[in-house]
Design a protein around this nucleic acid. Structure first.
Length: 427
DNA sequence: TCTCCGATTAGAC
DNA sequence: CTAACGGTCTAATCGGAGA
């Protein structure tokens, strides 16, 4: 007897960031106000509500360029509120976790679930939707298929076609129905096939998912690389991309930001760098890693072609891998001094931690003083205090001394679910 | 010629 | 008031430097 196909589900929240904002402001829809969420620095549109999509607002549209018409069209641009979105995400993810044998949290609003062997897949899928709706107010769609790529594609179908009622399962189709559905999906709708690859595939006459599935994996690999080959195999229900229940440790940790206003002074850059080191160091320690290389970069505004451009970076190979923010901050400050030049208006800066290894397997420098035990104790205390009392309660002396580099956030909603002091009183 | 490494590209969200 | 175009991450691929 042939093995039954695996059933991988991809559960994805609809218009996640915008839905989070709308949840706490039911008055907006009532008054015909259209919600979009902006990137950091209120730069461009990164999330659109159903209403925003309906009036044709484009993903990635620079907010400052949005016509007055759009703004007068009652469009409200919210500054991104990650504290709110990640708390809502945690709630959704924990509901889903309890409804499936295995879960991979793929992004802030998506999780893959392995439902292979479950006899009640349809009922479970609807239960997910109902439970998430009742407990959080958010709407999710469920796509199911024998591979992750097909689950993603099924989710796309579930979102696009109201008739699916939010659940679509490729495993429930006859081969003919399957071909017909795939034939109606553009290659660009497939996970892993972006803008560039779509263009190249179209030029070869491969325009829909069915045509890509029928392409020869070996020759496509030669032409477009291993990613496209895997995608073809996944469309053929071969499992090439496995479910990862445990998030692998980051191999690189970046913390960077564009500034609300251009920065010209070294002290202000130094302040921002100290902040980035704290953020990145915290992430490093939360995954129990150490970094062996630290890179500092600063850059001018690449959109201002009329101004002199400068975007240097400097990498420091650390004599001994560490996760100690104070040590990292010292090297970062030195690196910054090496690259900083006066006379430029800097628009962005950041740091990169690389050569990441496991804590306690640190290759020590033969000639260096061993890192004192007090160093890790200090970091533990720092992390504990900041966890308990909120990010930034305890920080480096020069982190926060300057506000020159602060990003623009003009319209941020309260952290409704996590900060009582921000919740508006009932009116 | 081979290998290593950094830079670049492409993609995701 | 004006100016204003995100951040984080991975994998693959490319091209030069050095062995």
């Amino acid at each position: 007897m042939p093995k039954p196909p695996r059933s991988i589900a991809l559960v994805d929240a609809n218009n996640f960031y915008c839905s989070c904002e709308q949840l706490f402001r039911p008055d907006l829809k009532r008054d015909g106000k259209i919600v979009v969420v902006l990137s950091n620095n209120d730069g461009c549109v990164v999330a659109r509500s159903a209403e925003a999509k309906a009036i044709g607002i484009k993903m990635g549209a620079p907010w400052f360029q949005m016509t007055d018409i759009a703004r007068k069209n009652n469009v409200i641009g919210y500054s991104s509120n990650y504290e709110l979105y990640s708390d809502m995400s945690n709630r959704v993810m924990s509901i889903l976790r309890d409804l499936a044998p295995a879960q991979e949290i793929y992004s802030i609003d998506e999780s893959f679930l392995d439902l292979s062997g479950c006899h009640d897949i349809r009922e479970r899928s609807y239960a997910m939707r109902e439970k998430v709706a009742r407990w959080t107010g958010l709407t999710v769609c469920v796509g199911i298929g024998p591979s992750k790529t097909l689950a993603k594609l099924a989710n796309h179908v579930a979102k696009k076609h109201p008739r699916s009622k939010g659940v679509f399962d490729f495993n429930q189709l006859t081969p003919r129905q399957l071909d017909s559905v795939l034939g109606n999906l553009e290659v660009g709708d497939i996970w892993g096939i972006g803008r560039k690859l779509s263009e190249k595939l179209n030029a070869l006459g491969i325009e829909n998912a069915l045509q890509l599935r029928e392409a020869d994996p070996a020759s496509m690999r030669a032409r477009f690389g291993v990613v496209v080959e895997k995608t073809i195999r996944e469309l053929r229900a071969e499992e090439c991309i496995s479910l990862e229940e445990i998030t692998p440790a980051r191999k690189q940790i970046v913390s960077s930001r564009s500034f609300g206003n251009p920065v010209t002074e070294l002290v202000d850059l130094a302040d921002s760098i100290a902040h980035f080191v704290s953020t990145a160091g915290g992430k490093l320690r939360s995954q129990k890693s150490t970094a062996g290389i630290l890179t500092v970069f600063i850059m001018t505004d690449r959109f201002r072609e009329d101004r002199p451009q400068y975007h240097p970076s400097f990498s420091v190979p650390l004599p001994q891998a560490t996760a100690d923010t104070t040590i990292l901050a010292n090297y970062a400050a030195q690196a910054l001094k090496r690259i900083f030049k006066t006379g430029y208006a800097y628009k962005k800066a950041g740091i990169i931690l690389a050569d990441i290894g496991q804590e306690h397997i640190v290759q020590t420098d033969l000639f260096a003083e061993p890192e004192p035990e007090s160093s890790s104790r200090l970091m533990e205390a720092l992390d504990a205090i900041n966890f308990k009392y909120g990010k930034g309660t305890l920080r480096l002396a020069n982190d926060g001394a300057s506000t020159a580099w602060a990003m623009r956030t003009e319209n941020k909603s309260p952290a409704y679910t996590t900060r009582l002091d921000e919740v508006p009183r009932c009116r």
